[in-house]
């Protein structure tokens, strides 16, 4: 199990908004490993897992975005049918609730990571590492 940092950006639901964010990320030289978008009618939160987290976070902040950095857990899984199920089952059996999640496929058809946020990171770690 890994501890990773996920970048969250507040964004209004309007044409061109996502494009502005991805441009800043591209110019910062960070590579997007995985992302997720959650939206309610007028706004949403976009989460990114990138390779150069600090650089990307700073670039977004400097560009004026409302951005936060959150800790998350990552579990390696197999990129094949049933791979995600196996990981989620493992997590839920230990009584950990997944708040948000995204997937990072490192090597297609071979290895991927399930990246998820939890309410209490330390508590979740204890439960999962047992």
């Amino acid at each position: 199990m890994y501890e990773v940092k996920v970048i969250s950006v507040f964004v209004q639901n309007q044409p061109g908004k996502l494009e502005r964010i991805t441009r800043v990320l591209a110019e910062s030289g960070a590579n997007i490993l995985g992302f997720s978008i959650t939206s309610v009618k007028d706004f949403g939160v976009i989460k990114f897992l990138v390779d150069k987290t600090e650089e990307a976070y700073k670039a977004l902040k400097d560009a004026g975005f409302t951005v936060a950095l959150n800790e998350a857990l990552g579990i390696e899984m197999e990129d094949r049918p049933g791979g995600l199920h196996k990981v989620v089952k493992f997590i839920s059996e230990r009584g950990v609730n997944i708040e948000n999640a995204l997937v990072y496929v490192e090597e297609s058809r071979h290895r991927a990571y399930f990246i998820f946020e939890v309410d209490d990171l330390e508590e979740a770690k204890n439960k999962l590492e047992k």
Binding site: S8, F10, T38, S39, V40, F43, G44, V45, K47, T66, V67, A68, N70, E99
Partner: peptide, 12 residues
């Protein structure tokens, strides 16, 4: 910016 929560639920 200072009080931004990354939770859609909280923003809502």
């Amino acid at each position: 910016k200072e009080t931004f929560s990354d939770e859609v639920r909280e923003i809502e």
